[in-house]
Structures are given as structure tokens and as C-alpha cells.
Amino acid sequence: MSLRTTLRAIPTIMRVGFADAIAYRAETIVWIAATTMPLVMLALWSAVARDAPIGRFGAQQMVGYFLAMFIVRQLTGSWAVWLMNMEIRDGTLAQRMLRPIHPLVTYAVAALAELPVRGLLALPIAIVALVAFAGSELTRGPFMWLVWVAAILGGWLITLLTNLAIGCAALFVESSNKIMDVWLALYFVFSGYLFPVELFPRSMRTVVDWLPFRYQLGLPVEIMTGAYDVHHALVMLGRQWAVVGCMLVITAVTWTFGVRRFAAYGG
């Protein structure tokens, strides 16, 4: 399981994942359509902000925020947990473990391969809409866009690692889909998906800062819409990557202990 074999296998796994996403393109479209919540929230919050701004958000800022949110959600999604739950239960994980490459890496690469297809289907329209309706809200300067790329990567890693960690939890309990349901409910509320986290009452803000959720979606969106200066953005990015580190440790630990309990059917 050397690094070289892993690196050499990655393009192939990517191709397979990509072909999968193309083969089930109708399903992919349905999945994209199912993430249109930001557009409903856009309608709601711009109605609320129409008369007078809330905090720094006028109607225009709300449009920018939620269109950016739609784009970030498409770029940072991961659904590895469902696949893992299925494969652990029916024993397919055993086949993955026979390959000379770490199973978690194959899940991660397969998840990554889905993103370009989603991107091609959903992003062009969203980007045009964002530039047309709220272009003035976007951050300026190439450096901030570099920070944004790092924040997107960090956000995606947190989502992916959470998926993998909760997927590994299925090695301990029969099915961890319910755990994921609870996680998702919290994620929707605290990530900035339904409303900017700045709108939480002050007392809640500290809690939100310490939870991982806002670094998954809210932070990239805020950087994209110019909520931070360079210094502040870098501080937030540092916190985000600290969360990535924590999640990496948690995933590694649950995998190491969980896999010892794995008994495939017929094994």
C-alpha cells in the first residue's frame, strides 16, 4: 500500500467515478435539484431584507450570499456515508480491502470524481446569475480568490472526513445513517446554509464558532462575498484547517478501531 501505487491508481478511480456520474445523469440532476434550498431561502431572506437591511445584509447582499451558497454547496458536497453503510452491511467492503490501496482513499477519490459532473450541470447558470445580479458583492483581488480556493478545499475535506468517520461508525453499530441524519440537521442550521451565521444572536455566535459546521459552507461563502479583510480571512482559514486536522484524526481512529470488528459475510 505504498504512496506510489496509490497515486498511480487515482486517475483510474477518478475515471470510473466520473463514468458512474455520467451513467446515472438523470439521478445526478435530481440530486442537484434537491439542493435548491438556497434558492428558497434567497426568496425568503430577500423578502425580509426588502424594507430595511438586517445587519450588513440588504436584499442585494442576500441574493449574493445565497447564490454563492448554492455554488459552494455544489463544490463541497460528499455522500460517501450512504455508500459506506451499504458496503459495510453487504460485505462489499471486503473487496475494497483486498485492493492494494486504502479503502478510505478509494471512497474519497470516488466522491471527488462526482464533483466535475455536478459542476458542469449546475455551475454555469449559477455563476452567470451571481455575476449578473450580485457581481458587485463579490470579493476583489486575486489573493482573496486564492484564499477562497483553500477554503473550498478545506470545506470539502471537512464534509468528506465527516462522511468517512460516520461511515466508519457503521462498523460499530448496524447502520450509522441515523447518526448522519442528526449531523445533517445540525449542519443545515449552523453552517450558514439556511441563513448567514452572523444573524445568530450574539450569545450563540461563540458556540457556532466552535462547531465545525460554519467552516464547511459559511466560511467559503463569506470569503467569496467579501465579508473579511485579508488578515481576518487568514485567521478564519487557519481555524478551518485546524478543524480539518481534528476530523482527520477522528476518522483515522474510528477506522483503525472499527475495521478490526469488520466481519464480511462469508469471511
Binding site: L44, V48, L186, F188, V189, F195, L199, F200
Partner: peptide, 16 residues
């Protein structure tokens, strides 16, 4: 649990 967390935006909207 889902239903309760889904109520949070309502409270936040009417807080503003």
C-alpha cells in the same frame, strides 16, 4: 429533532 432544528430560521427571521 429535524423538525425542531428546521424551526430555527423562523425564530431568526422574526428576531430581526
Amino acid at each position: 429533532f429535524w423538525m425542531i432544528t428546521a424551526l430555527v430560521p423562523l425564530f431568526v427571521v422574526f428576531d430581526a
